[in-house]
Nucleic acid binder design. Structure first.
Lengths: 116, 116
DNA sequence: GGGGAACAATCCGCAGCCGTAACGATTGCG
DNA sequence: CGCAATCGTTACGGCTGCGGATTGTTCCCC
């Protein structure tokens, strides 16, 4: 069953979500950071800087910096690939999983409260 | 009918949307800017700097700067309130309406393509 | 084994946004 | 009237992210 949604409902949903994100003290991730985080958690591992840069269509330093920031927030972690030590494997963390879990719940709750 | 959505679908939706936004050459608005834009277009006018600041829980300069940026992008415009010349009324523009229309359509299309 | 390729990180200058604190204009109340 | 309050903007110092170029390490292949 596809998700049926009208444009007006879609915009209301975005509205509520953006308001919640802005008001949260939670460190609001930039669109790029969120895209990286979701790619790491939703797509099949392994994830490398190179791969993520290609996936998002941005340069590698962008990925490195975003990982620096989100690493400090404990949302992801990095590990050397021992099989090929040039690679860095981006790993999920408990905190990152919790963050996305709460985010998903927020979306669900917001969608449910939309007027029909 | 409430919108039924599972958390995993919600996250997939956010994933696709953030990827689309990052890859677009379109000037990707910050969460705050998007919240302001949606408030202006979805909530009843009139909109003032003061009111938007209170609505988002941020300081007034944040609103002023966001309006500067989005004004240059022609997404919103400003006008003095002639009844009380201390106030500034934030107005919608054709470009802003088009921007949101496209955004809404993107969300709808993405939601429709989600696996069930 | 040596040289080039691949990879992530770092450096650099730059632009944008932040919060706090001021400021000028306008209003309305005492 | 005049003076405090309100409103939006601007100034300031700081922080973060950006693109592009470079660096150091590791691998691969001849």
């Amino acid at each position: 069953m596809a998700i049926e949604l009208r444009p007006s409902q879609a915009l209301r949903l975005l509205h509520e979500l953006s308001l919640a994100q802005v008001r949260d003290d939670a460190p609001d991730l930039s669109p790029r950071q969120l895209a990286i985080l979701l790619s790491v958690y939703l797509e099949a591992p392994p994830h490398t800087v190179r791969g993520l840069a290609a996936r998002l269509g941005v340069t590698k330093p962008v990925i490195t910096r975003a990982l620096d920031t989100m690493g400090q927030l404990r949302l992801v972690s990095r590990r050397r690939d021992e099989a090929d030590r040039r690679n860095v494997i981006i790993q999920r963390t408990v905190e990152g999983a919790l963050y996305l879990e709460r985010l998903g719940d927020l979306v669900v709750a917001t969608a449910r409260s939309l007027p029909r």
